[in-house]
């Protein structure tokens, strides 16, 4: 189990690195999908199968599909790859690299300093997640759904035929 965990973690890390380093946008997205799948597997190994399933269905299966969809429509060719190569020269790595190194140090310190061992570890079933969502977190769920509804209405307005929109404004 532990071997599997670290192997999956390694895959997730390498794929995530490739997302940042990749020159071709679609290839970078594919690596991001691999990273998400690896994360789902990590969730599963940690005893949260429901979160793992949602990770695959929602992130890898729906949100990333839309992103690939959009990038496909932009139809970037080799010119975009060249541009990306010019942007990703050594100098531009310094700032983000430094910030990431600081974050890594912080994370390492926190992990070592605090005792977050596996004492309270146990698998979480789907029903339990549901009870938590509609019990203590009910307000958050409702707020999120309202936000999504607003986004939906906005998207519908933007996508309507222009002629109909003008008719209402005048």
């Amino acid at each position: 189990m532990t071997t599997l965990f670290y192997l999956t973690m390694l895959i997730a890390l390498l794929a995530a690195l490739q997302v940042v380093r990749g020159l071709n946008a679609v290839h970078a997205l594919l690596h991001l999908i691999v990273a998400l799948l690896a994360l789902a597997l990590l969730f599963f190994l940690l005893g949260a199968p429901f979160a793992a399933a949602l990770e695959v269905i929602v992130y890898a299966g729906a949100i990333m599909v839309l992103m690939v969809f959009v990038i496909m429509m932009l139809n970037q060719g080799d010119a975009a790859v060249e541009q990306e190569r010019a942007w990703l020269d050594g100098a531009s790595w310094r700032g983000p690299g430094l910030l990431c190194a600081l974050l890594l140090l912080e994370l390492g310190y926190l992990l070592l300093a605090s005792d977050t061992g596996s004492a309270g570890w146990r698998p979480v079933a789907a029903a339990e997640v549901g009870r938590a969502l509609y019990g203590p977190y009910l307000l958050l769920v409702e707020l999120a759904s309202m936000l999504l509804l607003a986004a939906l209405v906005g998207a519908w307005h933007l996508a309507r035929a222009l002629k109909n929109r003008r008719g209402e404004e005048s």
Binding site: F50, A53, V65, A126
Partner: peptide, 23 residues
């Protein structure tokens, strides 16, 4: 335990075959 969700996950990943094939 989540067999049905596993099916849904696989069927949502299957979209990539068509999407990437086309791209």
């Amino acid at each position: 335990n989540l067999g049905l969700l596993f099916f849904l996950a696989m069927s949502s990943l299957a979209v990539y075959a068509i999407l990437l094939g086309g791209y």
